[in-house]
Amino acid sequence: MSSTEQGTSSAAPAEPTTAPESAAAPEVPESFYYVHGKDKVVHKVSAGALQHSALIHGMISNLGYTEEQAKANPFPFENIDGDILQMVVDWCNQHKGKPTPPEDTNLPKQKEKLFDLVLAVNYLEIKELLTYCCKQVAMMVKGKSPEEIREIWMIPTDAEDEAAEKEAKKRAGKEAAGETAAAAGDAK
């Protein structure tokens, strides 16, 4: 599990407590990095756990930070809610250095957060977790009727889709007209 602490990305965070070592701890001392979400709560995560995220792995692979530098420069993910980032970090820690099973029972249970979680995991490029999340989304409508699918997945009716499309076209038309008028004004 990761440890968390209130802080800001600009100020150096206070010393977070270390995550428990896995049973088969490597002999070489493990390096740690720090991430925070919208709520600025800093999470200390091992490089091994972060390997699940192609985005973060790419960011840190050539950084060569010392522990101090990493502490002073947590990765900011301002577009991810703190509790969502916490779920992601927990999952990465639980699956650190382990092959991911075909069915994951450690998925976050809060289904109401699933939409934000899917977007966050997609952004962080955590392939296996994304697959599990998408499976969970798919399972929501398993064996359901079209009416139930519409309700669970909040799918608009054709009439609502058409109205939204008309509205979008109208808005785009207005914006285009506004831009043309502005350009004409500039020309004068």
Binding site: K111, E112, F115, V118, M140, E148, I152, W153, M154, P156
Partner: peptide, 16 residues
Amino acid sequence: MTGHRFPFHHLPDDLY
């Protein structure tokens, strides 16, 4: 039916 709802069509196209 479950009480949870999910705005499926708001997902980006690749996730959808």
